Simulated scan of single mutants.
Amino acid sequence: MDGAIGTQLRHVLELLDGDVAKVYLDLGLPEYRPRFSPIVRTIVAEGPLSIRDLATAVGVTHSAASQTIAQLQRAGFVTLQPGSDARQRIVHLTDKTRELLPTIEAEWKATTAAMAELDGELSVPLGQVLAEVVAAVSRRSFQERISSRGVMENQPQRVAES
């Protein structure tokens, strides 16, 4: 596959998430998205949590967690209740979601097994490579790596407007 790494990463994500979404369609859950499961599974394991705590537990930004939780709420999978702090909202699963937990858990197990099968066909497991990328850019950001290549030195001088 030729092309920019970002394009390749997005394509891989679209392929994998797209097929998981098709499984949910086959299960009669067209409104359920693959990105919902980490949030739902975290609430099952830890109980109702704030959006910030969910973001931390799942390993996404607060903004990404907020967007996913808004989608979950619109689909009727979670409710938001005020927390101890007026700015805090606590995410709770609905009865609808609790009824679906056996299906969600079965899909998660099947997806995990399918990923293990796919990893067996790769020279290096995908999760291992991704974890290594995250660790490397945590040590030194990609921005720093790009900037250290002299890209800023090639910029034309800008004249300050008066």
Rank of each mutant, 00 (worst) to 15 (best):
S63I: 09
E144L: 04
L9F: 12
K96T: 15
D85N: 14
P156A: 02
A86N: 07
I104K: 04
R74Q: 12
K22T: 13
Q128A: 11
G59K: 05
L29H: 15
A70L: 07
L118Q: 14
Q81T: 11
L15W: 01
D85R: 15
R87Q: 11
G3L: 09
R149L: 15
V151A: 02
I90V: 13
V134N: 02
V91I: 01
T61Y: 06
M1N: 05
E99S: 09
T56F: 11
D17S: 00
R35L: 05
L15E: 04
Q143E: 12
V129E: 02
T79G: 06
V137S: 04
V159A: 06
A45R: 14
L80G: 09
T61G: 15
L93T: 14
A4H: 06
V91N: 02
T94W: 13
R145H: 03
T94P: 11
P38Q: 07
R33C: 04
T103W: 02
R10S: 10
D26P: 00
E46G: 05
Q143R: 12
R149I: 04
L16K: 01
A114C: 05
N154I: 03
G76R: 10
R52K: 15
L9W: 11
P38A: 03
T61M: 06
M152S: 08
D19R: 14
L72K: 00
M152P: 00
L126C: 00
E107W: 00
A65R: 01
E14N: 06
V124R: 13
M1G: 12
D2M: 10
L29C: 13
W108Y: 01
D19A: 08
T94V: 08
Q8S: 06
H11S: 13
G28R: 14
I5Y: 10
G59Q: 07
A64L: 01
Q81C: 03
A70W: 06
L118S: 12
D53I: 02
E107A: 10
L9V: 13
S141V: 04
D17R: 03
E31L: 14
A4G: 03
R140P: 01
D19M: 06
V60C: 12
D119W: 15
G47W: 10
S50I: 04
L100W: 01
E153R: 07
R35T: 11
L9E: 02
Q73D: 11
G18L: 04
S138G: 12
L93P: 10
A4W: 00
R35S: 13
A45D: 15
T111A: 13
P125S: 08
R74W: 02
